[in-house]
């Protein structure tokens, strides 16, 4: 769990570093970033309602603020926003948002607004990387920081899978099927990327995904 949270945090740091140091967001999908902001905002609605630990609250806060920051850079920063590949980043996000919402309205643990939005965020997160993966495939010579970002972001849910197996074995009554199945799907979506990422890493080459 800790390793998963840390790779998630590092993925965001890597992305912010890339944008800030190179003053460029080329190869980064604004659509994926906006989906992630939607995921964080709908999942962490309970930030001021239920307190679990200082760690949890801080991480929630960091995730919301940092994804807002990245979007701000890509949309408003006068240098960075010029480098956004808008004409390549054309994934129709409505095809991810609406099905996730409808599924959350039907398959959830409790019929309440908070619960449906939380479930929606779980479903949406599992597919939120798709615009980014499509953009990567269209970009020739993906830069290292961008590919590292996607690798770290993909590893995070993979590490959570291990955490869930461990908790399932050690905690009585620990079951969360919605989160598990979504997490499995989320990690499976990265499989192809992981394969090419590790291949290019072994050969010491820049990543380029076959189209």
């Amino acid at each position: 769990r800790e390793a998963g949270d840390m790779t998630h945090l590092f993925s965001i740091i890597v992305l912010l570093l890339k944008i800030n140091a190179t003053k460029s967001c080329s190869g980064v999908s604004l659509k994926t970033q906006e989906l992630y902001l939607l995921v964080f905002v709908t999942r962490y609605l309970d930030l001021f309602q239920s307190y679990i630990s200082l760690y949890n609250s801080c991480m929630k806060f960091i995730f919301i603020v940092s994804s807002g920051c990245i979007i701000g850079y890509m949309r408003k920063h006068k240098v960075v926003s010029q480098t956004y590949d808008a004409e390549q980043d054309t994934f129709r996000v409505a095809f991810l948002v609406w099905p996730s919402f409808l599924l959350a309205a039907v398959i959830n643990q409790k019929l309440s607004v908070m619960e449906i939005l939380w479930t929606f965020s779980i479903y949406l997160e599992s597919v939120a990387i798709l615009p980014q993966l499509v953009l990567l495939q269209r970009t020739k010579n993906v830069d290292n920081l961008t590919s590292n970002y996607v690798f770290l972001l993909g590893s995070y849910r993979g590490l959570y899978l291990l955490n869930w197996i461990y908790r399932c074995l050690t905690e009585e009554g620990y079951r969360q099927w919605i989160v598990w199945i979504s997490g499995l799907l989320q990690t499976a979506i990265y499989c192809d990327f992981f394969y090419y990422y590790l291949k290019s890493w072994r050969k010491n080459e820049r990543l380029s995904l076959p189209s």
Partner: peptide, 10 residues
């Protein structure tokens, strides 16, 4: 139905 697992993960 089983009680909901507390949302203690991120």
């Amino acid at each position: 139905t089983a009680p909901a697992t507390p949302k203690d993960e991120l």
